[in-house]
Amino acid sequence: MLNFLLWLILLVLCWPIAILAIILYPIVWLLLLPFRLLGFAIDLSFDLIKNILMLPFNILKKA
């Protein structure tokens, strides 16, 4: 009986949170998408700068 009562309390408390998470997840994902793209672009820029600076050392290493 106690387990059933605890399960009912959990059901009453958690289903609104679950529905809210299902509704808000795509919205939050769309809001964070520009920041992910910006981070990707910055990462590529730093990789490009690193490769340009390391190019002479890579050429000397292969020679």
Rank of each mutant, 00 (worst) to 15 (best):
F57V: 03
I42F: 14
I49H: 06
L48A: 15
L2N: 11
K50A: 04
L60V: 01
L60I: 00
N3Y: 04
N58P: 07
I22N: 03
L55P: 03
L48D: 01
P56L: 06
P56S: 02
R36P: 01
N3F: 09
I22V: 09
K61Y: 06
W29R: 12
N58C: 03
L32W: 14
I9C: 02
I49K: 10
F4L: 15
L60P: 02
I17Q: 06
S45N: 15
L20Y: 14
L24G: 01
K62E: 00
L60H: 03
I9Q: 05
F4A: 13
P26N: 07
K61G: 02
L8N: 06
L13C: 09
L33C: 04
I23D: 01
D47E: 15
L32T: 15
V28H: 01
N58W: 10
L11Q: 13
L31F: 09
I27K: 09
A63R: 12
I27E: 01
L10D: 08
M54C: 05
A63D: 06
P26M: 04
D43Y: 14
R36L: 15
K61W: 02
W15A: 03
L32I: 15
L53S: 12
L5K: 05
K50L: 02
F35H: 08
I59K: 04
L20D: 13
W29F: 12
P16K: 04
L8Y: 03
L6P: 00
F57G: 03
L55E: 11
G39C: 08
G39N: 10
L31R: 03
L11F: 07
S45R: 15
L6F: 11
S45I: 15
L10W: 05
N51D: 13
L55K: 13
I49M: 08
L2D: 07
L33D: 10
L48F: 12
L38W: 12
A41N: 13
F40N: 10
V12W: 00
R36T: 10
I19T: 08
W29A: 09
L30S: 01
I49L: 15
M54L: 15
W7E: 00
A63Q: 06
M1V: 12
I19W: 12
F57C: 00
L30M: 06
L20A: 14
L24P: 07
V28P: 00
L33K: 13
L10Q: 07
L20P: 04
F35M: 06
L44T: 13
P16H: 02
L60M: 02
K50W: 01
L24E: 09
L53C: 14
L13P: 04
A21G: 11
L6N: 10
R36D: 15
P26L: 06
L10P: 00
Y25S: 12
F40A: 10
V12P: 01
W29N: 09
I17V: 12
I59V: 13
G39M: 10
F35G: 07
I19K: 03
W29C: 04
G39S: 02
I59M: 11
I9P: 00
A41G: 09
W15Y: 06
M1W: 00
N51M: 08
C14I: 03
W7G: 05
L53H: 14
I27M: 06
R36Q: 08
N3I: 05
K61T: 00
L38K: 13
L33V: 05
I9A: 04
L55V: 11
P26I: 06
L5Y: 05
L37V: 09
W7M: 10
W7R: 05
L8K: 03
F4D: 15
V28Q: 01
V28A: 10
L2R: 05
